[in-house]
Amino acid sequence: MALDKQTVAKVAHLARIRVEEDELETLAGEMNSIIGWVEQLGEVDTDGVEPMTSAVDLKLRLREDAITDGDYPDRVLKNGPSTEMHFYVVPKVVE
């Protein structure tokens, strides 16, 4: 299925990346060429095949539910573009 400009704009919004109107056409073309190419996977018979979710056969480990790290808010916040009193500052969300 071909992606149109409208679909690309919707996907860009889902990904929270602003895309200018005049870029949508080119981007749709590039994405179509990639999607068209990956569609060859349709040839592979995958009936009854389990999806591979990890590159190694391993069970995720369990650990004690204990605090093992932390208590250094200054370090955590050090790279924040805007912080105040140990909080990140963002534009107003609730009126």
């Binding site: 929270r16 990346i17 790279n79 924040g80 573009p81 805007s82 963002v90 534009p91 969300v93």
Partner: peptide
């Protein structure tokens, strides 16, 4: 997302800032 580290470009609201 412009909140915890790295670049931030302001916008009129949170979504616009992300985008």
């Amino acid at each position: 997302d412009g909140v915890r580290f790295g670049l931030r470009v302001e916008g009129k609201d949170l979504n616009e800032m992300y985008e």
